[in-house]
Amino acid sequence: MEIIILMSVVPDTSVKIKLTADGLPDMKEIPWIINPWDELALTRALELKEDPGNTVNKVTLLHVGPSTHGQVLRKAMAMGADEAVRIEATPRDSYETAYHIVAFLQERAFDLVLAGIESSDYNGAAVGGLVAGMLDIPSVSAVTGIQTEGDKLHVVRETDGGRETLRMPLPLLAVVQKGIAKEPRMPSMRGLMMARKKNIHVIEPGAVDSLTEYARFELPPPKPPCHMVDATNPGELLELLENESKVIHLS
């Protein structure tokens, strides 16, 4: 069984975003990373592959992005992925990304596709669901656990108010979130060496037009300074929360 990870590459989440003179997010000199949820998805896929109790034998990365993302893709391969495919495009919205992924998946057999719930840059929370919808295949979202059972999957789904364990057949697209793996795996030295020899397949994209466009960007207005209260008088803070901002009720 093969697991395909839809992987996106995003600016390091600890970076403060600035706008350029043209009012666009300034991406110069920003370190790029694997989208945090995709990194967890990849980690879980590799755990499954290494566990002799199931039939996962291949983990493939699928990425839509320019060649400048190659280094991050390489790092993901160093974590232990077997293969990477990069569709050479710079998508303008999540529909374009999904379109390219669908075009690729329509041409080949697949079992399980994992997508992170969103990317930490444009927070679209869209690609996984769009791909499942466009392919009209079964899908499941808010997934926090995956285990194989023969040719089926046991999936833990977080609901708004609890969780469910589901049994689902393949092929399947699962949109995963925090909890799917404990912590992202670090690439090993050996992994880094091996990744250098692995091939990234580059695919030319088809023509597609976006359904949305970013009209403009704006930084949030600066916050007024924090009102400091003396540590000896925590009651004053309660007072302010009750009477000034009116967010608590004590009487």
Partner: peptide, 24 residues
Amino acid sequence: AYSNAGKALAPLVAAHLQAAYVSA
């Protein structure tokens, strides 16, 4: 809603309608 169920279903429906989808 921007809930687990909403995030699961909205993009699926958008894909079928060929509608633009914006979350949150």
